[in-house]
Design a protein around this nucleic acid. Structure first.
Lengths: 133, 133
DNA sequence: CTAATCTCTACTAATTTAGTAGACAAAGGT
DNA sequence: ACCTTTGTCTACTAAATTAGTAGAGATTAG
């Protein structure tokens, strides 16, 4: 898996909101400035996170975003899968985004990459945003 | 790191040549058929591997390719780095292809991804094509 | 000389990435 | 009721990458 800019931004935004958990709403503008994320791009990203159930929002002045659940209930893996797709280095060893690819010709190669996938998945599934504050 | 088709093909081609190590030259056509790789695309890939010193070739009829060194002297990591670039999931934790990216704002995130990079690198640096026959 | 094979360069269609732009909707304060 | 602030939604785009294809040229064996 290769992180896109978008998923890096998503993680930073969630870290920011985790750092301000239980402190009311944070404006897009504020998150944008604190983490150095282009505002209009961040808007789209927050919307995706909201639609997926990670955030709650309110419009209007005094509006903004906040986490919809506790930081320790959100792991990195979910977010990367949401934004970028597979964690696996190749579709052939992906659990949630499997697709047939040429390396299936080699069982040994598959097993090497499956080992890598398993490590990545375990690490990212056990790291929550609570751990990143 | 996300494997491209190109690097998958490169690995399969090297596996094929490893399987025929010390058996003379293999034609592009043969490798192409045995591993199911588009011939004209494979040509380009073999050329890259040759220029990087992994293969030797001879032209003309009875020409072909062979490994320039023993399969146990070539690891997966080198090949992926050659074709796809960084093994790391993000430029900020890449040793050979470092580049500054947004997640550097978070030391904790960096450390998670550095752990992943280290695992990937170790696994791929210690797996040789001898192991894949 | 010719056929087979590797070599080299150029081209391309489709997809992805990293945004920007702007109109619209809702909430709050006056 | 109105205005300002903020989130929502859709569309657009420039640049890069991917996964090839195409074709002419160089070498070697026979």
């Amino acid at each position: 898996m290769k992180l896109s800019r978008k998923s890096e931004y998503a993680c930073l935004a969630l870290i920011d909101l985790s750092e301000h958990y239980n402190q009311g709403l944070a404006k897009i503008e504020e998150i944008s400035k604190r983490k150095g994320i282009p505002k209009k791009y961040l808007e789209q990203i927050l919307l995706i996170l909201k639609d997926a159930g990670y955030l709650k929002s309110r419009r209007g002045s005094e509006g903004g975003y906040m986490l919809a659940k506790s930081p320790n209930k959100i792991c990195i893996a979910e977010i990367i899968r949401l934004i970028d797709g597979a964690l696996a280095p190749v579709g052939s060893v992906s659990r949630y985004f499997y697709e047939k690819t040429p390396i299936e010709k080699s069982k040994k190669l598959i097993s090497v990459f499956r080992g890598i996938r398993d490590y990545i998945a375990k690490k990212m599934e056990t790291t929550t945003f609570q751990d990143l504050i």
